[in-house]
Design a protein around this nucleic acid. Structure first.
Length: 226
DNA sequence: GACCAGGCACATC
DNA sequence: GATGTGCATGGT
């Protein structure tokens, strides 16, 4: 068993990762992520959800939708002040307005505003390009690739790191790339599995880690650790 | 009123 | 490279 960068991966970790998946998958069933009707809506959501609860993002997305702005061309030509006004409930609205505009310029300059055209690029090449857009970091880029593009790219977030630390799979301070490599080396490169796994992790984090008294009811409590 | 939420860029050391 | 800080709303 090897990681994406060729390093050896302990079989114990792979078994534990797969155990976590099957326990959570049995507990929750198909979570059908990401909430979003179109790839563009998913991308907008991925930018707006940076360090923000999904409830607030949903309000902002609903505002954009009812204003008819959930379209690459309409949003591209909208004045920044108008965008900021609509996405205000998602917080950091000035920063996020600029981040949305940076992405829109990237999309229009490189792909004529065509999302499908953008996803025709090689996945690793597109990831590198996305990371060069101001306001798109690793998690946002990977969310875009997986949830909007259906690419086999694992998304790591705060919940993922917390869960792996809690189950002694990674040390504290493990890098984004390190965590991502663990998942991608332990699982088949199947977008459906990556999609569901990340959703399961976030849901578990929301349900059992945020609320400390409920930790004892977490479906993962019975997993064996070395 | 304090703390947290599905990050990121930038400044400073 | 590691650490600190600003960005902001809405729920608990």
């Amino acid at each position: 068993m090897r990681t994406a960068d060729g390093k050896k991966q302990s079989p114990g970790k792979a078994v534990l990762i797969r155990d976590i998946y099957s326990v959570l998958d049995r507990h929750y069933g198909d979570l059908k992520w990401w909430p979003g009707e179109t790839p563009f809506e998913v991308i907008v959501g991925a930018i707006l959800t940076q360090n923000t609860s999904w409830d607030n993002v949903a309000r902002a997305v609903a505002n954009l939708k009812s204003a008819g702005m959930l379209c690459p061309f309409r949003l591209y030509s909208a004045p920044p002040g108008r965008i900021a006004e609509l996405i205000r409930p998602s917080g950091y609205y000035n920063v996020k307005t600029m981040r949305l505009r940076h992405f829109l310029h990237f999309l229009h300059d490189g792909f004529g505003g065509d999302i499908d055209e953008m996803f025709r690029l090689d996945t690793l090449e597109l990831r590198t390009l996305l990371l060069s857009v101001n306001g798109i970091g690793e998690e946002t880029a990977d969310s875009i690739l997986l949830y909007a593009g259906g690419k086999p790219v694992f998304v790591v977030d705060a919940y993922t790191k917390r869960l792996l630390q809690r189950h002694w799979i990674i040390p504290e301070g493990c890098s984004y790339a390190g965590v991502k490599a663990i998942f991608e080396s332990c699982l088949p490169p199947d977008p459906a599995v990556y999609n569901q796994f990340h959703a399961l992790i976030v849901q578990t984090g929301k349900d059992f880690c945020r609320k400390k008294p409920l930790c004892g009811e977490c479906p993962l409590r019975l997993l064996n650790h070395e």
